[in-house]
Design a protein around this nucleic acid. Structure first.
Lengths: 247, 247
DNA sequence: TGGTCGGCATGATCATGATCAAGGAGGAGG
DNA sequence: CCTCCTCCTTGATCATGATCATGCCGACCA
C-alpha cells in the first residue's frame, strides 16, 4: 500500500465508531438508539493498541476512566503487602475495566495486556453526566456493575468450595462460554494467559494446574498443546465443574 | 404508657425519616442536601422488623428493590445444585442489600436476618428515576456498587491465598472496623452469626473455626465466650491477618 | 553452536485443614 | 426437673494440593 494515507488510515482504524463496532450488542451502548449512540461515541477516546505486557493503568493511580475492551485481553493484578500478588480478573472484548475504582477514586489493581489489545477509554465524569440524560445508558452501567458483583460471588464460591479439578473445569467452561457469546468457537481457542496466571487466579499452584490439565487430557476431555486448547467433551467438563459438594 | 397513640407511635418509629436517621452519614443519601433528602425519603418504604431467621427475599425471586439495613444484621446465602450453600455476605447497618440482582432481574441469593433486623426498602425503579435528577445520589449508588466490587476482590484474595488463621484474623479485624465506623466499640461486640456461618463464609470447616478461636484465645489475642467477643490485642490480630504470603 | 532464560511438566514429600467421631454446654418446652 | 435440641468444642485420622526438586522444550542471542 504505497499510500500517503496509510498512516491516517491506521488512525481511522482506531477511531472506528460504536455504530460500526461488532461488539456494540455486548458493550455499554447496547441499549442505545442511534442518535444517542452518537453522543456516547463522542465522549470516547480511542487508544493506541497496547502490546503484550504493557500496562493500561497501575494500582493506586487516580481513577479517571473506565475502559471497554475492544480486542485482545487483559488481567488485573492486585498487590498487597510485599510481593504477594493476586490476579483478580481476566477481561475479554466488550467487558468493562476499572469499575472497582469509582469508590475510592483510585484503581485497586494494575491492569496489563496479555496480548496486543485495544481498548476504548471512557472518562467517567463524562459517562456519569451522559447517564443523566440517557436512562438506557445508566441502566446498562448499573447492569454491568451488578453482573460483575454476581460473577464475583460465583468466584468466591469456586474458591471456597471447589476442588482443583472443579476449578479448572469451571475455568474452561466459563472461557468457552464467553468465547461463544462473542461469536468465537467455544471449542477451540488460544489461552492468552500463562499457567502461572491461571493458577494465581484460581488459587492453585502452577504445578497443580499443569497436572490437572494433563489428567483432563488423558481423560479425553480436552486437548491442550501449549496455549492452544480444544475442548473435546464440553458436557463432561461441565459435569466435572458442577460435581456435587466436591465429592 | 397508657396512651391510645402507642400503636401509632410504634408505627411512627418505623417511619423515622432519613433526616433523623443516625446512619444517614453512611447510607445512600449521604451526600444529599436537605430538600433532596426529602425526595429520597419519599420513595422509601419502611418495613416491619424481621425476626431472627426470617427471610427478606428468596433466591431467584424477581428483583424489585434494594434494601438499606437500618439495624440488626443479615446474611446472603446462594444455593447451587443441591444442598451446597455458599454464604456470600454479611450485611450490617447502612449497607445496601440486593445490588447484585439488578443485572438479571432476580436476586442471586436468599437473604435472612441473623437477629431482629429493620430495613428500608428502596424500589429500584424509583431510585433509578430519582438518580436522574440527583447526581449526588447517582454518584453514591455507583460508589456503593464499586465498594462492593472492591470488597469482593479482597474476599477473593482471602479465599485463595490466606491460611485459616489469617482468614479468622481478617474476619475479626474487618468486623471490628465496621463496628467502629458505625460508632460501636471496635473491641467488644456480639457475633450475630453462628460458627457454621463464619466457616461457610470463610471457606473453613466449623471445627477449624472453633479450634482457631480457641488458639487465638490462648494466645491472648481475643476473649471469646459464645458469641460475645472481646478483642484484646487488635494490633497483633491485624498482623496475623496480613502475614506475608501465608508463611 | 552453545548458553541462558521463561514457561511447562512430572515426581516425591509434606502440611494444612477436612472429615469422622464423640461429648459438653445452654436454652426451650414438656 | 428432665429431655431434646442446637451450637460448640476437642481429639484422631486422612486427603488434597502445596512445596521442593529436577528436567524438558523452544525462543532468543551472542
Amino acid at each position: 500500500m504505497p499510500d500517503s494515507l496509510t498512516g491516517r488510515r491506521r488512525s481511522v482504524l482506531h477511531e472506528t465508531r460504536c455504530q460500526t463496532c461488532s461488539l456494540s450488542s455486548l458493550c455499554l451502548p447496547l441499549a442505545l438508539e442511534v442518535q444517542d449512540m452518537d453522543q456516547f461515541d463522542a465522549i470516547i477516546r480511542r487508544r493506541a493498541p497496547l502490546k503484550k505486557g504493557e500496562t493500561l493503568f497501575r494500582q493506586d493511580s487516580p481513577f479517571t476512566s473506565v475502559y471497554a475492551v475492544r480486542s485482545g485481553s487483559l488481567k488485573q493484578v492486585t498487590t498487597e503487602g510485599s510481593g504477594d500478588d493476586q490476579l483478580t480478573n481476566f477481561y475479554l472484548p466488550s467487558e468493562l475495566v476499572g469499575l472497582d475504582g469509582i469508590d475510592e477514586e483510585q484503581y485497586p489493581g494494575t491492569v496489563v495486556a496479555l496480548e496486543t489489545t485495544t481498548v476504548c477509554e471512557i472518562p467517567f465524569d463524562r459517562l456519569d453526566q451522559l447517564s443523566e440524560s440517557l436512562p438506557e445508558l445508566r441502566g446498562q452501567l448499573y447492569r454491568s456493575m451488578s453482573k460483575e458483583l454476581r460473577d464475583d460471588r460465583r468466584m468466591m464460591r469456586l474458591l471456597s468450595r471447589k476442588t482443583a479439578d472443579q476449578r479448572l473445569a469451571s475455568f474452561f467452561t466459563s472461557l468457552s462460554d464467553r468465547f461463544r457469546r462473542r461469536g468465537y468457537s467455544p471449542y477451540s481457542f488460544r489461552l492468552s494467559m500463562s499457567r502461572a496466571d491461571i493458577g494465581n487466579y484460581l488459587g492453585l499452584a502452577v504445578e497443580t494446574v499443569s497436572r490437572i490439565l494433563g489428567r483432563f487430557q488423558s481423560q479425553g476431555l480436552v486437548e491442550v498443546s501449549g496455549r492452544e486448547v480444544h475442548i473435546l467433551d464440553l458436557e463432561s467438563l461441565i459435569q466435572v465443574a458442577e460435581e456435587e459438594g466436591a465429592k
